[in-house]
Design a protein around this nucleic acid. Structure first.
Length: 490
RNA sequence: UCCUUCUUAGCUCAGUUGGUUAGAGCACAUGACUGUUAAUCAUGGGGUCCCUGGUUCGAGCCCAGGAGAAGGAGCCA
């Protein structure tokens, strides 16, 4: 039995029963109090009430003949009410328990002419426009509970393994990470921009005394932590000012970046695979009802699609499959060989035909490998150094680096990582070649001067993980308040 | 940023070859009914046809420009 105490206005310490508990309760005849939001009000008698504790509503039965009309009129879709009465076995068919209400109070009215949610299916696009109210729908209730469970599981996974949760900065002054366009952070008066003699913006009197940006990655700082604490991870917001308009990009998203000392690429892959399996298992164990709901929702949605476009596995089968199979590991070079020999490449069905080694893989190629060829998550390693970042450890062949990308069906790249270049001369030479300003990153280079060691890490896009586990298809639907080009509402 | 499609009532959508007063279902309001399950039945209100300009006797429909959305691509997580 759980009680929740809360304060509303001048009332103190109201005790309420959670609907989730009552639905499992068989102590018929006991007095209960529920508080929640009206989903539907049928027949002047039956209120379907939700309090967010679970997806199901509880049926509150009113003795409408003995209730004032003026009160009944205020029981409208979206209104917040409290009801107390007796928990009874339901005589109706759709539910096992219900509440025979003796008292009804309106906590918050909801104008039925204006309340946008109806007791029917809404499009995800419409709900996105009312993101402040979409939490009240079953779908988003399930999505955000799974999101919470996954976040909790991430911390739990790393904590169990002795990792230190490290808070890397949100504001950074280095524009050298090369992970994408950055948002500027400044207190400069835009109506009076200070200029240097050669016409550049003069940041010397700006808040930080130099140009500052929102972080695009905590990796470089996390490496500093790993090289002292051993194992660290970050889990925080990340910002990319790219003009990306896709179902898998956000301008503000959450990223998990572990960094491990004395680890090579093999250890890195093992850690990544273990993390993904751990958090998926956690969601399966802790959110069975939410996943079941989303599974049914997906099946319902796919009914409208042609057979060929429907997925072979339902949501739960997909997650189980992911847990029970080793991820396929292969090198970039092996992947190119497979792609070169593949049907769509031979028949020129790819938009970008693979001619030979060195080509950057397009998403159609990644999708072919994951969804058609191997039909399971794939880890690609040892990419050409030209298409990867300066900090990745160079292989002896002089051509490739110890990078890894984990590709998931329907999502594409969910993890990108590498063993880091720990050798000072290799690192600085590569920075030179790629025009990375060494002065700005002196602290990163210093790490290789004072007791350097092999280390590795990766970045996991949290929303992409939530996408995969919930089976949602647009990344804007798995974060409460999505930020993307032309949209920072709420 | 590029490609494709789209934008009509609160929501989902129809709207013929350019032709009179722009429709449906749901929602909402009023009434009836009252153990319903997105209750049912009857009646009713509700429109900047995304914006700007153009062609035309006449534009929701055709043309140009713009904005926004969805999907795909690039960038990436």
């Amino acid at each position: 039995m759980y009680f929740c105490h809360l304060t509303i206005g001048t009332l103190n310490m109201i005790t309420r029963n959670k609907i989730k508990d009552l639905l499992a309760d068989r102590n018929f005849g006991k007095q209960v109090t529920v508080m929640g939001w009206v989903r539907t009000f049928r027949n002047n008698r039956f209120v379907a009430l939700s309090d967010g504790s679970c997806i199901q509503t509880i049926q509150v039965v009113l003795d409408y003949e003995n209730l004032p009309d003026i009160l009944l009129k205020r029981i409208t879709t979206g209104a917040c009410i409290s009801a107390n009465g007796t928990l009874v076995e339901s005589v109706g068919k759709g539910q096992s328990v219900e509440i025979n209400a003796e008292n009804i109070d309106i906590i918050g009215d909801s104008d039925p002419e204006k309340f946008p949610l109806q007791p029917k299916k809404h499009s995800l696009e419409f709900l996105r426009e009312i993101a402040h109210l979409r939490f009240r729908t079953n779908t988003f209730n399930a999505v955000f509970k799974i999101r919470h469970a996954l976040a909790f599981a991430v911390h739990s996974f790393f904590n169990e393994r002795g990792f230190v949760y490290m808070h890397t900065p949100i504001v950074t002054a280095s524009d050298a990470e090369g992970a994408g366009e950055m948002f500027k952070v400044t207190t400069i008066d835009f109506d009076n921009i200070p200029r240097t003699d050669d016409g550049e913006v003069d940041f010397r009197d700006d808040f930080f005394g130099k140009a500052a940006n929102l972080t695009v990655s905590g990796q470089l700082e996390a490496e500093l932590g790993a090289m002292a604490l051993g194992e660290v991870y970050t889990f925080g917001p990340t910002f990319r000012a790219e003009n990306s308009n896709t179902t898998r990009h956000l301008a503000e998203f959450w990223m998990i970046e572990p960094e491990v000392a004395f680890a090579d690429l093999e250890d890195n892959m093992n850690l990544a695979e273990a993390l993904l399996k751990y958090v998926i298992k956690y969601a399966l164990n802790n959110c069975p009802e939410e996943l079941q709901f989303l599974k049914s929702r997906l099946l319902e949605e796919e009914k409208n699609k042609p057979l060929a476009e429907r997925s072979e596995l339902d949501l739960l089968e997909k997650l189980e499959f992911c847990l029970n199979n080793e991820f396929e590991r292969l090198t970039y070079t092996e992947a190119i060989d497979i792609l070169k020999a593949s049907k769509p490449n031979q028949k020129k069905q790819f938009k970008y035909i693979i001619e030979g080694w060195g080509a950057d893989l397009q998403s159609e190629h990644e999708r072919f490998l994951v969804e058609k060829h191997f039909k399971k998550p794939v880890i690609l390693t040892d990419y050409p150094k030209e298409i990867k970042s300066f900090y990745m450890r160079q292989n002896e062949d002089g051509k490739t680096v110890r990078a890894m990308d984990i590709l998931f069906p329907g999502i594409g790249e969910i993890i990108g990582g590498s063993q880091r270049e720990e050798r000072l001369d290799y690192l600085t030479k590569r920075m030179e070649e790629m025009n990375i300003p060494q002065e700005e990153l002196y602290w990163y280079i210093d790490l290789r001067k004072f007791g350097t060691a092999p280390h590795a890490g990766f970045g996991l896009g949290f929303e992409r993980l939530v996408l995969f586990v919930t089976g949602m298809t647009n990344i804007r639907d798995v974060i409460p308040f999505p930020r993307f080009p032309k949209n920072a509402e709420f």
